[in-house]
């Protein structure tokens, strides 16, 4: 994990991190750097098809937004990546959904390692009813880290990364439920970072938050870009346009269009996409 060379992220005035040059013009599909790639991936709840024959590849270090109308399968697809859909009885998958070249629906997938390296942030902030400190330590402790010094270090680092440190550093042992909604969601992000993931999946992370908290989360996503591969599901097109490098548009379980964000929002190649982003949909 450690490399000798450190490239700190620089901030622009707008609060967005500078985009890595080499990715700026890269082709979206079939990239050799794809960390998540789906090939003809379908997901069923009983007889109902949630995700229908989706093929796409997500570049390492990028921020990918998935948009689409409600019930279009965007959340299902996201939750398939770290197999959170396993909890739903009667669900099953078809095709290939590979993380780092490994098909996660392989029977012999190490679910623990998969979920630790593909972290997830949920729609509603869901901190445990424990202290802030214990929330963050939950993942590291599962990985066997017991030393207090090491844990404190992780807590501080993750809270700083999640831009929450200054607000809570004096209250680390207070209940996480006492935080505001936006703080709780940033705590959940910090908690996810504490497991040292490579990919962070965000399932409409701002839908339960007010605009100010949303802006802070978006800032945070911009900061984390590059260090983590981020996939974010959102129903807010402005948000997708603001934070993402690439955007995928899902409709009725199908992937309609997947392209660089500027391209998709300014010059969509599909009629459905255009209808949706111009508000003529539904």
């Amino acid at each position: 994990m450690e490399t000798p060379e450190t490239v700190p992220l620089k901030k622009t005035d707008a609060g967005h991190a500078a985009r890595p040059q080499q990715f700026a013009q890269a082709a979206v599909t079939e990239s050799s750097e794809a960390v998540i790639s789906a090939r003809q991936f379908s997901f069923f709840y009983g007889a109902k098809c949630g995700v229908d024959q989706v093929s796409m590849a997500i570049r390492s270090g990028s921020v990918t937004a998935i948009i689409g109308p409600s019930g279009c399968g965007k959340s299902t697809f996201l939750r398939s990546i770290n197999r959170m859909n396993d909890l739903i009885p009667g669900s099953r998958a078809q095709g290939v959904l590979a993380v780092n070249g490994h098909n996660v629906y392989d029977k012999r997938t190490n679910l623990v390692n998969l979920r630790q390296q593909v972290g997830m942030v949920f729609q509603k902030p869901n901190p445990f009813a424990k202290s802030i400190y214990d929330n963050i330590c939950y993942g590291p402790r599962l990985q066997g880290i017991r030393s207090r010094g090491r844990l404190s270090e992780i807590v501080e680092k993750c809270l700083r990364d999640a831009a929450l440190w200054d607000e809570v550093k004096d209250d680390l042992h207070k209940s996480a439920l006492a935080l505001s909604g936006g703080q709780q969601q940033r705590l959940c992000i910090a908690r996810t970072l504490a497991t040292r993931p490579n990919v962070v999946l965000m399932d409409e992370p701002c839908s339960a938050l007010d605009p100010i908290a949303t802006a802070r989360i978006e800032d945070l996503i911009a900061q984390l870009k590059g260090a983590y591969t981020i996939v974010i599901v959102t129903h807010n097109m402005q948000q997708a346009a603001r934070v993402s490098d690439e955007t995928a548009f899902f409709c009725l379980g199908k992937l309609i269009e997947y392209d660089r964000t500027e391209k998709l929002f300014t010059n969509p190649s599909k009629k459905e996409t255009e209808d949706y982003i111009t508000g003529r949909f539904g």
Partner: peptide, 25 residues
């Protein structure tokens, strides 16, 4: 706003690609 890199653990921006823990049992 803080930086992603702090003392202790340093993270390359390309580190996103490095999966250190095996996904296969």
């Amino acid at each position: 706003m803080t930086e992603v890199s702090v003392q202790g653990e340093k993270r390359n921006r390309n580190a996103a690609a490095e999966f250190t823990r095996p996904l296969l049992l």
